[in-house]
Amino acid sequence: MEVTSQLQWNPVLADPTGVREAKPRTLGKTMVMDKGLGLLAFQDLLHTSGEHIDMIKLGFGTSPLYPLAVLKSKINLAKEHGICIYPGGTFLEVAVQQDAVDSYFDTIMALGFNGVEVSDGTIQMERRLRNELIGKGIAEGLTVVTEYGKKGWGSTIELNELIETVLIDRELGASLVTIEAREAGRGVGIFDEDGNCKDEELQQVLSAISNRILLWEAPMKSQQVHLISMLGPGIHLGNIAPEEVIALEALRRGLRSDTLALGARKE
């Protein structure tokens, strides 16, 4: 049988949940962490998984380590696929520490990045400066994603501080606020030293803040399953490994045994 461009999967097979939004979506965004993919691997990722990726973060301070031609090609490819691409927030923290913020913004604009992450996961940053960085990103026409939480082992969520951070960041124009979990997903934020979700803390956060404006870093499959099962396919998830994008999309749609119940037919 010849496969034609008109051939499509039955919608109840492609998405048993029946709720997955197409891009540009407002719910269920997926942020991929790129820690050094080569250009061919990056092209392959977007060719295979581009429809399931909303944001790509070039992890930590990796952005200046690429040949400029490769970096610009990756940025352009991401934008062609409707993806927000930005350097990791740690790189902006380096710029703050080195008193090179203006140079940082000049360069990311010249390169064509369409997003920026504002964080203070490693350094101490006054609220005034955080406000200025968010405002600078907005003024440049960038999508601003902020991050709450410290990267140190054992760091936790301070609820009142989180609420204040989210409310101010959003008022200033941040599109999403990321909840820190690092690339390992252990011993930080809502995850314990084994990577298990601290549900009581999670519920405390959600009792005060809408889940629609939070991006949860969840690099481990067990974390993704847990959060999707608790909060549904529309949860925003980040720090997803490039090779796990389609596997995560299958979880969101109830196409894996772990979340099959999400797509169960209602009688």
Rank of each mutant, 00 (worst) to 15 (best):
S155G: 09
V245S: 09
S222R: 12
G154P: 01
I246G: 00
K151V: 05
E267T: 12
I213Q: 05
L40F: 06
I134M: 03
T90L: 10
Q97G: 13
I53T: 08
K35R: 13
S63L: 15
A247M: 09
A250K: 15
P11D: 11
S175I: 00
I83G: 04
V145D: 00
E147T: 07
G59Q: 07
S222D: 04
K198D: 10
L68F: 09
L45R: 05
Y66E: 08
N114M: 02
V70S: 15
R25G: 03
I209H: 06
I108W: 04
M125P: 01
P11A: 12
G82Q: 06
L202K: 02
I85R: 09
G238V: 10
G185A: 03
Y86H: 09
T143K: 08
G141S: 04
G173E: 07
D192N: 13
F91P: 07
N76L: 13
T146V: 01
F191N: 07
A69W: 10
I190E: 03
S257M: 13
G187L: 07
Q43W: 02
A139M: 11
D120Q: 07
M1F: 14
E171A: 13
R186D: 00
N76R: 14
N239D: 11
M55E: 10
V12I: 14
E249L: 11
A78D: 02
E244Q: 15
Q223F: 03
P64H: 03
Q43P: 04
E2Q: 14
P242Y: 05
R186M: 11
E244R: 14
Q124C: 00
V177F: 01
R130E: 12
V3N: 05
V166Q: 00
G112K: 01
L37Q: 08
S5E: 13
A139C: 04
I138F: 09
G61T: 11
H47W: 13
G137V: 04
R128A: 15
P242V: 08
P233Y: 07
K57I: 06
I163F: 10
M1Y: 14
R182M: 02
V3I: 14
M55R: 03
E158N: 14
V19G: 06
H81G: 05
E171K: 14
M109L: 15
P233R: 07
L71A: 06
G232I: 09
I83P: 06
L39I: 10
K198I: 13
L162G: 10
R212N: 15
E217K: 10
N196V: 09
G36Y: 05
V245K: 00
A41S: 14
I75R: 02
M109W: 01
A218I: 01
D99I: 00
R253G: 02
T4W: 10
E164G: 12
V245I: 10
H47N: 14
